[in-house]
Design a protein around this nucleic acid. Sequence first.
DNA 1: CCTCCACAGGAAGCGCAGGAGT
DNA 2: ACTCCTGCGCTTCCTGTGGAGG
Length: 399
Amino acid sequence: MPSFDEFTRESKIFRDRDVLSPHYVPDILPFREHQLRELMSSLAPALMGKKPRNLFIYGKTGTGKTCSVRQVAKKFEEKSTNGKAAIIYLNCRIHNKPYRVMDKVAKTVLAGFDKQGYGLPQIYEGLLKWAGDGRHLIIILDEIDMIKHLDELVYTLTRANDELKSGGISIIGISNKTLLKDELDPRTKSSLYERELVFPSYSANELQKILQQRAELGFKAGAFTPGAINLAGAIAGQESGDARYALKILSRAAEIAEETGKDKITDAEVKSARDMVELDIVKEQIEKLPENHQLVLYAVAKLSATGSRYARLEGEGENDGYLFSGEIYEEYVQLSKKLRRPSKTARSYRSYLNDLEMLGLLTTVESGKGIRGHTKLIRLGHPAQEVMRILSKSMEGGG
DNA sequence: CCTCCACAGGAAGCGCAGGAGT
DNA sequence: ACTCCTGCGCTTCCTGTGGAGG
């Protein structure tokens, strides 16, 4: 019989788990002074009754975009006590259409719109009336690239500004897509990009400082070594400069330390945490792959595990472990047959291979020096056993 | 040298699902 | 609710590449 003591016993590692979670917003954002100042200076006009210019924020994942904006939004709300300015944060993954955005804005800002069932024209009129009294609204659109018909939304909002004599509506767009600019209507582009702000990736050094800060808040004194923090920062810095990834490694390391009964996070925990986080990411990637991609990947994994049926390459160690494109296709066809699914053409199969390579799930090499004419040699990017385990679970459940 | 094999990957067309317009 | 349109995944067809074999 297990005892509750086992689970309620105070942690030897954690002081406050929330501090390590990806949703935690720290009071101090290191290395973002410039961005915070820029944000504040672009919002400040609204506090003085002037219309802020629209702002577009760009930066890769885990560079502190959302964190910074939310923090500034909070400060803005504290300052704006006269009811003449409002700020609203929306994640466009959820509010991904013009109507949904407008609806949400109306429900949070306008009185009487909290019930459902208002059409766009009513919402629009409502907003005009609200802003017409000399009020300013700032709409933050996080992950703005997820919005369908962004052109339409931006057009509607800028048109509202044109109709207003006093007051106004400003947009802060946040995205991690560089190419978004090219997909937009020129007019949308020029109004959305009135002002731009870039969040660069963190360096290893900066990540180490960030982790240090979190570790001091989240872990007990002496529950981590400086080396472990630096290693986690170095790994994340080398991979991506993504602070979220760095934090993931650190909190995983902490969990490992706790589960194994250690009272300290060391390099060893960080190293195994790295592998686990890596595998988590791979798992996520594989699970949302389309069916045929999964089947092809499974075929590669299976052949990697059982060995190529064709002769080994001319005794060259460096090419060892590569599979021929042709045999993988055959395996894929058989696999499909076994699962009673129609297999696709060899041509399609080649596209799948390219997709999988693009995702880093496998590596391919063009043959050329004396091997089988013109073909591709393929090798799995991750341990075959793990890939097969993930896939067999995913294919069972996913249909 | 030519031809065949075993592939790579571009171009075009086809059927389908889902959104827009009416 | 109906058609119309559009994007997407696939297939078909095709041209190119480079070693093997006659």
